[in-house]
């Protein structure tokens, strides 16, 4: 496999044990380049722990993390050159100015950073007016902006943000979302975000890994998660005669419909989209009046609750 095709991040059996307990339990999945990728799971699922292992804050008990194919345990310095991250909260030196904080970050890299680049990120997060003030005078929102500027300073190919929307107001969340999508789309950056809020992930991510109790439940594209399993959906039809309709569908299309118990005008079929169209045509052609056809799309919420075993997350 050439370097071009390598996923941005690969987790292989990644495990963190504390005593007997595995708080992250054999996670294996790939994070493709240039996508916004979400770690989704209830509080305590192990998202932060996973991120901490990826960025080298805690030791890996078992398994591997590869960054563009580089093992973080063996090749830490090279692997980290690709990463910008905020783990939990943006961390800043409050007694330094915003600019000094960025200067500090600039010196932490492997390659020198042009002062122009510092200016650039300051402008990017809109802190020009206050950048030479001490961070202790900053509001929470400004601190978060400065944190993001720090993470972006070295132009990382992978940006990792742990619960980035915590403490943001709806406008801030929207702005961040647009920003992250822009970074992925226009600059080809791989963005990894974690959240316990499904609604946020739905809008922000291309793909999510659902994690619960330290285990991977599944990795799926958001679009697929919203669609029903394999394109099969349940459609309820309201007709003038439900039992006639059921017989007709069974004879002509081999579709077994279920009659609604309390209503003699309703029946439901489980089928793909085309079969729904066929069914309606058959019914209409045979002079059965079709008043209504409604498809119950499973919501993302339903899928998610099913996956994590009914833990409240939304």
């Amino acid at each position: 496999m050439s370097a071009q095709e390598l996923p941005a991040v690969q987790l292989k059996n990644l495990t963190k044990r504390i005593g007997q307990k595995s708080i992250v339990d054999h996670l294996s999945f790939d994070i493709p380049k240039g996508e916004v990728f979400g770690f989704l799971g209830p509080n305590g699922a192990g998202k932060t722990t996973t991120i901490r292992m990826i960025v080298g804050l805690i030791a890996i008990s078992e398994g591997q993390v590869l960054i563009h194919g580089l093992d973080v345990q063996k090749n830490f310095v090279k692997a980290m050159s690709n990463i910008g991250c905020i783990v939990e909260n943006p961390e800043l030196y409050k007694y330094l100015t915003g600019y000094q904080n960025l200067l500090h970050m600039a010196r932490m890299g492997q390659h020198p950073i042009d002062p122009k680049r510092i200016k650039e990120v300051v402008a990017l997060v809109g802190l020009e007016d206050r950048i030479h003030d001490k961070v202790k005078t900053y509001s929470l929102g400004m601190r978060q902006r400065l944190g993001l500027a720090q993470a972006l300073l070295h132009k990382p190919s992978i940006l990792i943000l742990d619960e980035p929307t915590n403490g943001l107001d709806p406008a801030g969340i929207r702005e961040l979302r647009d920003h992250l999508r822009h970074l992925a789309k226009e600059e080809g950056m791989t963005v990894i975000v974690s959240s316990h809020l499904l609604s946020e992930m739905e809008l922000m991510c291309d793909r999510v890994a659902v994690i619960s109790h330290g285990k991977l439940i599944q990795v799926e594209q958001i679009a697929d998660m919203v669609a029903s399993e394999n394109g099969i959906q349940t459609t309820t039809l309201t007709v003038n005669n439900a039992s006639d309709a059921k017989e007709l569908l069974s004879n002509t299309l081999k579709l077994e419909a279920t009659l609604s118990s309390g209503d003699d005008q309703k029946l439901s079929i489980v089928s793909d989209r085309d079969q729904v169209a066929d069914a309606i045509k058959v019914l209409v052609d045979n002079n059965i009046r079709v008043y209504e056809a409604s498809t119950q799309r499973k919501t993302l919420e339903d899928t998610f609750l099913k996956m994590t075993g009914d833990e409240s997350i939304a």
Partner: peptide, 14 residues
Amino acid sequence: SGGTIKLLLTRPQT
């Protein structure tokens, strides 16, 4: 205690 250790340890430095 300031949490800033994370800044130091998640950068490409040993």
